[in-house]
Write a protein that binds this DNA or RNA. Structure first.
Lengths: 145, 145
DNA sequence: CATATATTTGAAATTGAAAATCAAGAACAT
DNA sequence: ATGTTCTTGATTTTCAATTTCAAATATATG
């Protein structure tokens, strides 16, 4: 699966006439082996530990490339940090965000998606993307308070 | 209705031991007479035209106060600008955002709200707030492209 | 293989929104 | 009126993200 994604990115890069660089390979490896929802800073620090040479800007740039390539998706929560999550074959999911421990839980709901489409239709909108986030306390954090 | 909101803010200010200032009155007037979804900068510029003395920081601070007072709600869309919308008696609504002309259309959907609660329950979450935004092109912008 | 050219990188500077700082000014209780 | 405390606004700071640009690197070509 990781190999497939690497191939996908290489295909994208080739199609766009991008060069194959050591940095992009490294960043892709780290991104693919990381859990969902890494922030740029998080990923940058993780990479830096073993590859001190890699710069901030390159990580930012490269994550944008992954997004363009369809490997990653930008997640903007309410804390001003951009996160990136893995994209698997067009599926979309939404997020429960715990304001206590910052955990992010994914969910999908077909019915909600359908209702969204109806709402858009009603207003003559053509939806390109959407964002649904439920903020609150997860079970563990509720227990602790 | 505007009068009610002014009273509500005065009550809030009194309860919090805040002082009544010319600036807060002016900002409240402008906020109340403005359309939904003003960004801080927008409101600041509008006020500045007739009240050049009022500072950036005061507008930021005061809008946060309105939010605390329950008169306003912060809206964070994907463009990095904080907007404030009017709150009317606890009702909540979500947004269709046109990426063509930046129009923001409000909608409400009981069924979606209900489904959200079910999802939260399923995950043991206690929801404090939520955010649903549908990004796309409005009817007019679709026609123009 | 060498070389030319075009892309990519990374350090540093810049941007832009928001928050913090702090002296001067204003509100309020007395 | 006066002293205390809060508020303001110019400025600085912060922080994430982007831009800049010279140096480094990848690739095509001879």
């Amino acid at each position: 699966m990781i190999l497939e994604k690497k191939k996908a990115f290489n295909a994208f890069a080739a199609a766009k006439g991008l060069r194959s660089t050591r940095q992009r390979d490294i960043i892709l490896d780290f991104f693919l082996s990381t859990r969902q929802h890494v922030s740029v800073e998080e990923l940058y620090l993780k990479i830096k530990a073993s590859h001190p040479g890699i710069g901030h800007a390159t990580v930012y740039r490269t994550l944008k490339l992954f997004t363009e390539a369809g490997l990653a998706r930008e997640i903007l929560l309410n804390d001003g940090q951009t996160r990136y999550e893995h994209v698997s074959a067009g599926e979309h999911h939404d997020h429960l965000v715990c304001t206590g421990c910052n955990a992010i839980i994914e969910f999908e709901d077909e019915t909600i998606e359908k209702l969204q489409k109806e709402i858009a239709l009603l207003h003559g909108f053509m939806i390109k993307s959407h964002k649904l986030e439920l903020y609150g306390l997860c079970a563990a954090c509720r227990a602790n308070q």
